[in-house]
């Protein structure tokens, strides 16, 4: 695609909270980094995300501005990026098309300018393999989209967005209960050269992020990185998640479910 360009960072300049008080910092988001947004409903997460999505230029209630690679976007960049800067994945999303998974992802690859049909199919197969690595139960390329389970759909959406989406920024909104291997999904997204922002209430996802932003009253109230104590906590939480996954697998396959310690060893 002709107007495709790599964006290595976006910066949201300090705005003001709902009471008009100035926000303390400019916030920069970089590729290869995952940022978690935390805060109760109504705290202003959506406001921040919508500022990013609309390439805010001091024209939104927050007064923030969006910079691309540290620069205010030109009129041409604004035009090209409007509505396309952010790819979004939320829990409400479904596939509504009645098409085979491979056929659909191939159509997506073609829409991204992969003109050679063989190359488009190859790209689509790669997406489906990546999705199957995330989903609990693999699906076949010829499975209809509408027959995928919730977890399989989510896995396909994540893999497709990571590998085929044009948008330089990827926003994941509360996908924690999707039945997807979260940490594998994180690794896939981190390798995608995208700026990844996750709005979450999940402790594992929140602690796995490189940085956490706490939102309150319409503004960013704190930016935190993992402390050594949190690192230890994350390791234990991750072990527990693996135990849950193993238990789920055992139940699914009819394997004998043994004692607690078999799944959740005490460190």
């Amino acid at each position: 695609m002709a107007n495709e360009q790599a964006i290595a960072s976006i910066t949201v300049t300090a705005g003001r909270d709902k009471a008009g008080n100035p926000e303390p910092w400019d916030l920069t988001f970089r590729t290869g980094e995952v940022v978690a947004l935390l805060g109760p409903t109504g705290s202003g997460k959506s406001r921040l995300l919508s500022d990013i999505e609309s390439l805010a230029d001091g024209d939104t209630p927050s007064g923030r501005r969006l910079l691309l690679d540290g620069q205010a976007p030109t009129a041409e960049q604004r035009f090209a990026l409007h509505g396309r800067l952010v790819a979004q994945l939320t829990q409400n999303m479904n596939f509504v098309l009645d098409m085979a998974a491979l056929e659909f992802v191939t159509a997506h690859a073609e829409s991204r300018g992969i003109a050679d049909p063989a190359a488009a199919t190859a790209a689509a197969r790669q997406v489906i393999d990546a999705a199957n690595a995330l989903a609990g139960e693999p699906f076949a390329p010829h499975t209809q989209l509408t027959q995928l389970s919730g977890g399989q759909s989510r896995a396909l959406m994540i893999a497709d967005t990571a590998l085929l989406s044009w948008s330089p920024v990827l926003l994941l909104d509360e996908i924690e209960n999707a039945g997807v291997d979260k940490r594998a999904a994180m690794r896939l997204l981190l390798g995608s050269d995208k700026i990844v922002v996750i709005a979450t209430h999940d402790p594992v996802l929140a602690l796995s992020a490189d940085r956490r932003m706490v939102i309150a009253n319409g503004a960013v109230a704190a930016v935190l990185t993992r402390t050594p104590a949190e690192e230890a906590l994350l390791t234990r939480l991750a072990t527990q998640e693996e135990g849950l996954a193993a238990l789920r697998h055992a139940l699914r396959t009819g394997a004998p479910v043994r004692a607690w310690e078999a799944f959740f060893p005490t460190p």
Partner: peptide
Amino acid sequence: GDLVSQAEREVYRHRIRQMNSRAVIRH
């Protein structure tokens, strides 16, 4: 667009562009 996958939105947008090369397209 909030009800369908990112991929469907992108393919849809592409198909709109094929039919109308000059319109501004927005979600």
